[in-house]
Amino acid sequence: MAATLSPAQLPSADLSPSDLEAGSSLWRDAWHRLAKNKLAVFGGVTLLVLALVCIVGPWLSPYGYEEQNLNNTFAPPGAAHWLGTDQLGRDLLVRLMVGGRISIMVGLIATSVALTIGVIYGAVAGFFGGKTDSVMMRIVDIMYALPFTIFVILLMVFFGRHIWLLFFAIGAVEWLTMARIVRGQIMSIKKMEFIEAARSLGLGKRRIIFRHMIPNILGPIIVYTTLTIPAIMLLEAFLSFLGLGVQPPMSSWGTLIKDGAEKMEEYPWLLLFPGTIFSLTLFSLNFLGDGLRDALDVRAAKD
């Protein structure tokens, strides 16, 4: 990461407000830096390829994801079924791809929900501090403590079993830690010179939060987001246990891994392939996340 950067892109106290918000070039440069990061590019490309395979693959497969063959159960990987078959003789490859659609979608949407709520909530609490912060954080404490299983069952009782409810249920728990992390970071940079400077220039609070503070704590946000995605993908498996979200015979990575874990000794391919794809996705996400973090790290350029 030896990207060079012109001084104009550095937010520092002696710049005018308009320079401070020279956003577009900042993003463009970040993009350039990202493109030079081999691992990040690898991660990004892998994710794209995986997503593409999951979207297109099932149409190319000769098998349907719910198509059973009870005379060919637990078939090991081979020419007919590249990744083998499951307990009902269904093709694992096509189930993995179809499951990928679900898991990627759940990962993206639910994470966005958690991310948006968590960042805004945490930033507001951290920025205003005092009573506002106190009340907001006690609400977070309450949300942490409420029994999740019961919460989810109740949601289903009142709102049915729609897939959107799944995102809401996941979002409702996963934003909490994000909010606490963001709040901590915001409080720590609140007293720094460049924020004081922005204040003294009379910028609006919203502008300070969103244009100056959040971009400066993107690092931890990105890191925690990449940690949230796998948690969400596995949480989905638990919610489908409660009857919310993905219903059989539809698959998801979480349910495939859970299923494979129970049969890992006798039929290892049922765990190995979903597990490998899951890991590959997470590693790619982290490479991309780290690259993104580096690319957006405006201070790093001073090295």
Binding site: G219, P220, R293, D297, R299, K302
Partner: peptide
Amino acid sequence: YVARLTRGGMLEVLN
């Protein structure tokens, strides 16, 4: 989680 968050947090601070 701790390793990822420590790495991220340290990178912020080291600069």
